[in-house]
Amino acid sequence: MSGNYGFWLPVAASSYARDLDTDFYLLLSGMVLMFFLWLGAFVYFLLRYRSGRAHQVERSGRGGGWALGAGLSIIVFELAVIVVYSVPTWAHVRMWLPSEKDAVEVEVKAQQYAWNVRYPGPDGKFGRTDPKLVHFTNPIGLDFSDPAAKDDVVLANEIHLPLGRPAIIRLSSLDVIHSLFIPEFRLKQDAVPGMSIPLWVKPTRLGTYDMVCAQLCGFAHAFMDGKVIVESPEAFEAWLKSRAPAAPTPAANF
């Protein structure tokens, strides 16, 4: 898994990872072009117009026409990238969800300093939770008087996902703000207490990926570390069966 990372963007492992990278490369090419145009003019002027060379100071050009030209070209470039690429990509990644029928549903509830992961189990329904029931043996406060809760699969710091099938991740937090960050998926979203934020991702590459916290959440923030395991649909189903029915699994309460 360490082979996924380099001195540049890591391996792309989700269906939209390449789209995000492409947007970055579009912007990067504009940035580099703009910078070297400025730098070229800058260096040329410094060499050409240093004092001591015999030339009269040119006072012309108080108008700012060159600046307006530069401003105009950057807005045309930015608008092109945004309208053609960024806004549609954003709509696809963040303003759309796959239908719940086709998707694997996972709930991720962050806490200091662990990711509590829950699957709805064979009945396809998440059971009720209650903050009053939170205990180190029941990290998300699952209410076992609810029949839907009995087959829920709860585990810590590990998400299993099937290859090629969209997953809906419902993200929330028990205590402070955390941020779910899976570099290979190009996925990042703050987990906010009091909110349940739906995300989607379609894994396109088998493997094990880092799942870390990107928002300062306390002294052990740097050690809030988990794994995403992308496996074949058959292996995923077999794994899910092996976990159910759930005995509540204690999360590592750091």
Binding site: F42, S60, G61, G64, G71, I74, I75
Partner: peptide, 24 residues
């Protein structure tokens, strides 16, 4: 992205101030 325009204008004006000067 709109706010980047005035910033580009200012920086470009500064770079073009060098043009034709007698730089110390």
């Amino acid at each position: 992205l709109t706010i980047s325009i005035p910033v580009v204008l200012v920086v470009t004006c500064y770079v073009w101030t060098l043009k034709g000067g007698s730089i110390r």
